Structure formats: structure tokens, C-alpha cells
Amino acid sequence: MDEQERWSVGDLAKSAGLTVRTLHHYDEIGLVSPSERTPAGHRRYTPADVRTLYRVRALRSLGLGLDTIAETLAGPADLSDVLRTQLVHLDAELDRTKALRARVSALIGHQTTLDLLEAMHMIEQYYTPEQLEYLARRRDELGEDHIKAVEAEWPGVIERMTAHHKAGTDPADPDVQALATRWSELMAEFHGGDQSIIDSAQRMLTDTEAEGKQESNGYNKELFAYVQRAWDAK
């Protein structure tokens, strides 16, 4: 093998689209080290070293960490097992990303940027990661069009129930009963009957009310208590 079949660190970095610093790091951790050095101590990569480097790049493109790549290349590890483990990791990351997207999507258009950040922080205080993932899955199952239809109906239901509340209408009144039934149905669209979600939503409402942060759409503790009386009157 002649000299032309060796690569300096600079030439290899340029050819592979990497930085010299990256190749130095790979050498330091023993991932891809040059097999030869010149009498002056300069690194020289052989064709075998280059093949190893491109295997590393291929595995990195699949999202594998350097430690996992090193173990895969150094030992008898089954690449299929490594990739199956990576697929599980990627699925979990995808679920978290979808949950975050659903949370942001649900808030966009309803608050200013600062209000949006405050609302997201508040949500994280009252809902567990598992509950947020459940809500994201439920939103996906229902579909955006259905969710928008439910969200569009809520203000009217709240407005009509508020009018009855302020007028002192008996909770057993047929109109109030019909509204209470629809209220319950719309809430079920959100929580799907999950009691832990219901409890978290109620805690957030109670604390928000106590801090004087009443919802701008009129949905507050007194109104909810009125709806509760309507449910009890059934």
C-alpha cells in the first residue's frame, strides 16, 4: 500500500465533512484512531480506518450515541438488537415531542407569548408527564377538526350557563339541566373519563381562582359550583 492510500487528519476531515477537532475527539476516546503516524508524529489514516469512520457516521445518522457505537463496533453486539433499542428510544422521544406539540397547539391563538409561557408552566405544575401524554394521545384520536368544534362550542355553553347563574335560575330547571348535560359531555371530550385528569383540572381551577387569575372566558369556581348543583339535581 503506497503513501497515496493514507490520509492526513486534515484531508480526511475535509473528505468526510467533519472538523479536525471531531476526528481528534474520536481518536482520544478510541473510537476511530489512525493506525499509522509519520516519523514527525502526524496522524495517518489507512483505508481500514476510513471504513471505520464511515461506519461511525452511519450509526450516528441513526441517532446512536458514541458510547453505544463504540460498544457495537468493538464487541459481538447484535446490530439488530442495538437498533431495536434505539427504535424504542426514538418512539419515546416522538411521543414526548407530540405531547409538547399538542400543548403548544392548544394554546396558540389564545394568549400572548408571555401568557403562553405562563400557561405552559402552570399546566406542568398540575398535570404529570403521563397525564400530558394521555391528553396528547386523546387529542390525536379525536382529531384536530373535532377538537376545534368542541372548543368553538364551549364559549356559548359557558355564556348561557353564566346567564342562568346570575339570574338565580333553579339548577333543576330543564334548560339548566340540558346545559349541564352538554357541559358534562364537553368535559368528557377533554378528560375521557380519567378521574386523575378531572382531579388535576379541578385543582388548577381552584388554585387559579384563589390567586385571582380567573379565566377570561368566565369559567370560574362559582360557576362550576352552580353546574355541580345542576348535576346533583338530576
Rank of each mutant, 00 (worst) to 15 (best):
W183N: 05
E124F: 01
W231H: 12
D81M: 11
A167Y: 11
V9L: 03
L64R: 01
A13H: 02
E118F: 08
H191C: 02
T19R: 05
R203Q: 15
A106K: 05
Y26V: 07
A106S: 11
L117F: 06
A152H: 06
D199Y: 05
I198S: 00
K14H: 04
I69E: 07
V88Y: 13
T169E: 05
T46I: 09
G218L: 08
K148Y: 12
Q202V: 10
S33R: 14
S105R: 15
K166M: 14
T208N: 11
D207P: 00
A119E: 13
L53C: 09
G156F: 04
T181S: 04
L107A: 14
V82Y: 06
A225V: 08
Q125Y: 08
M161F: 09
V88E: 12
Q125C: 15
E71Q: 14
L94F: 14
T68C: 15
S216W: 08
I29C: 03
E211Q: 12
P34K: 06
D140S: 13
S8A: 10
D27G: 00
G41A: 11
Q131D: 02
Y226N: 06
L73I: 08
Y219T: 02
G192Y: 02
A106W: 03
Y126A: 07
E189L: 12
R43N: 06
Q125V: 13
P39R: 09
P174F: 05
T181P: 03
W7S: 10
G212R: 09
L23T: 12
R138W: 08
L73E: 03
Q195Y: 08
V56L: 00
A230F: 02
S80N: 12
L83Q: 14
L223Q: 07
A167F: 12
L142V: 11
L18E: 07
P34I: 02
E185N: 07
P155A: 11
